[in-house]
């Protein structure tokens, strides 16, 4: 059970994340979009979307710091465990709250604005559920365990386990010993990573940072015509041909 949950599941999720993105990038450029709903509604989005996105970027940064960077490195920099704990709990709580507030506004908007509700697909709903669960359990870990519950040093268990996955010598026993809320959080996030390439979340990987350096106007040659060279299936249905005459 320990091996299944903390070795097989993560590797399956990472495989799906990687191969799914490659597959989708090659076969569904046309579907690779944010599918923004700002055209329908502006006022709620104006608050919800930046809160959610910027909050999430901060949350992501916190995760990189807490999981990818070993505790020994921060200690070598002279950051005491107490100082790290203080920083991670305060900034983590703040950015988590911002993200949660943003998500709340966005979910409210998605369910109450008729046009936005109609534009919501079933994979969207699954994705929102997982996102909410991931954020909820994450907040539970930060606020519940670390702020109120006296602190839990995930850098001694969760982080080494996560890093061990990438050295191909996984240590599932580290993860099995963590509190249940951390385990649930990890499973939810792994599921989210697994379905990521099949949702609108793909837009994260096309963050347009190249815009800062490219020239303003793009000129492109028409290029040689390649009749019938379709890279992937048609994105719309052709109308029915007229019945043949006798």
């Amino acid at each position: 059970m320990t091996r299944l949950l903390w070795v097989t599941v993560p590797y399956l999720a990472f495989t799906s994340l990687l191969l799914g993105h490659i597959w989708r990038y090659r076969h569904d450029q046309f579907g690779w979009t944010t599918r923004s709903s700002q055209l329908y509604e502006r006022r709620l989005l104006r608050w919800g979307s930046p809160l959610f996105h910027f909050g999430l970027l901060a949350v992501l940064g916190g995760h990189v710091l807490g999981i990818a960077v070993p505790a020994s490195w921060t200690a070598a920099l002279g950051v005491s465990e107490h100082a790290y704990h203080l920083l991670s709990v305060s900034v983590g709580t703040l950015s988590g709250l911002a993200t949660l507030a943003g998500l709340g506004i966005l979910l409210y908007r998605r369910s109450t604005v008729p046009a936005v509700r109609k534009a919501t697909t079933s994979i969207d709903k699954v994705m929102y559920l997982l996102l909410t669960a991931a954020l909820g359990t994450g907040m539970l870990n930060t606020v519940g365990s670390n702020l109120i519950g006296g602190g839990y040093d995930y850098r001694a268990t969760v982080s080494p386990w996560f890093r061990s996955l990438f050295t191909l010598h996984p240590h599932p026993e580290l993860m099995a010993a963590t509190p249940i809320s951390f385990q649930i959080h990890n499973l939810v996030v792994l599921t989210l990573l697994a379905i990521w390439p099949y949702t609108r979340l793909v837009h994260v990987f096309s963050a347009p940072l190249g815009y800062l350096t490219r020239p303003y106007i793009v000129y492109r040659s028409r290029g040689p015509a390649r009749p019938g060279a379709h890279r992937y299936a048609r994105a719309w249905e052709a109308s029915a041909p007229p019945p043949a005459r006798r």
């Binding site: 190249g210 000129y219 492109r220």
Partner: peptide, 11 residues
């Protein structure tokens, strides 16, 4: 366009 998807055809 952040993605550089809009272009002017040189022909």
């Amino acid at each position: 366009c952040p993605s550089g998807a809009i272009y002017k055809r040189s022909e």
